[in-house]
């Protein structure tokens, strides 16, 4: 698989009255064509800001301070605004958590869907309408010929998210950035939406960057996972790596703190004590240090990324130590 997007040392900050909040502090990763990759993290981990920075969609108080985000070799972060607008919606599409606020309440669903098609695909009005109906059908909206002339408020939350998916995928983008697309929905609807999203992206060959706080969703949908904390990537690997052989104490803690579905036993949950760091004055060392049961004085300095196996990297001195032990063992 060839590389579609490569993000290098992305840094985004928000400038508030109290000072600079460093939301994303040097994030690098890449997405291959047709890949489904997930970013998990808690609120304030920088996952959502990372996603929004890719398309320069952060609010005015925020600023991308550094880094690159190359889509097929073109850096989106330095692209002029009008060229970027062609990329948005056409090559890279985005869906958000709350479909009510991302749909225009005074336009019909059809008007919003055809706008995308006419703008990016240069379709005629009639042709665009037919295409829009077809898309509504594809995302599972019953009687799309009638629904197309209705307004967003006439749709339920799940249906609105389906409309958003139709709109996002109608231009067959290379990359779909989905920011907590199912968080506001019930589990039964979430399951439908996730199944729909993955099936459609597989048929269109669209890569997906899924932002979520739900480890279950990542395990079910993605092939690769990035774990973020305190504006940094703590660990990255395949879902199998992350769920069966987590390396970072934060990932391990996160997995332990969710109830396991094991029969007949009510085990006590193992929480991560404390709360996430303040990014107004982020620690210069490991951001997880304060809450980490295995922290030592070494952690005052940020460790380098070390691969415990190809494609599975983590940001922890323990991984560094384990790696050098292994290498010594080999010699």
């Amino acid at each position: 698989m060839t590389e579609l997007l490569s993000v290098d040392q992305l840094r985004t900050s928000f400038f508030t009255r109290d000072g600079e909040v460093q939301a994303v502090r040097g994030v690098s990763f890449s997405i291959k064509e047709g890949e489904l990759i997930g970013i998990v993290g808690e609120s304030g981990s920088g996952k959502s800001v990372t996603a929004k920075s890719l398309l320069r969609l952060i609010p005015p108080s925020g600023q991308i301070v550094g880094g690159q985000s190359k889509l097929r070799g073109v850096d989106l972060l330095s692209l002029p605004e009008e060229k970027l607008r062609k990329v948005r919606g056409h090559q890279v599409a985005m869906i958000f958590q709350d479909p009510m606020t991302s749909l225009n309440p005074v336009l019909t669903v059809g008007a919003q869907l055809t706008e995308v098609l006419r703008r990016h695909q240069k379709l005629s009005r009639r042709h665009a309408r037919q295409e829009a109906i077809e898309w509504l059908r594809q995302v599972g909206i019953p009687s799309p010929e009638i629904r197309i002339d209705q307004y967003p408020h006439e749709f339920s939350g799940g249906m609105r998210q389906r409309v958003m998916i139709a709109m996002a995928l109608s231009c067959k983008p290379d990359l779909l950035v989905a920011d907590e697309p199912t968080t506001a929905l019930d589990v039964t609807i979430q399951a439908q939406i996730l199944a729909l999203l993955t099936n459609l992206c597989k048929t269109t060959g669209t890569s997906v960057l899924l932002i979520t706080h739900d480890l279950g969703v990542v395990a079910q949908v993605c092939s690769r996972v990035i774990v973020m904390y305190g504006g940094l990537i703590m660990e990255e690997g395949t879902v199998e790596d992350i769920f069966s052989a987590p390396q970072h104490p934060y990932t391990k803690g996160l997995l332990r703190s969710i109830p396991r579905m094991r029969e007949g036993r009510r085990e006590r949950l193992v929480p991560i004590e404390g709360s996430p760091p303040n990014l107004l004055n982020p620690p210069s060392g490991c951001p997880f240090m304060e809450r980490c049961p295995q922290a030592s004085s070494e952690c005052l300095i940020l460790p380098p990324y070390v691969e415990s196996k190809p494609g599975h990297r983590s940001l922890c001195w323990l991984t560094v130590a384990r790696k050098s032990e292994r290498q010594e063992g080999l010699q």
Binding site: Q190, V221, F243, M261
Partner: peptide, 9 residues
Amino acid sequence: AAIPIPDPK
């Protein structure tokens, strides 16, 4: 059946 199980297996 709709609960996403945090286990890729």
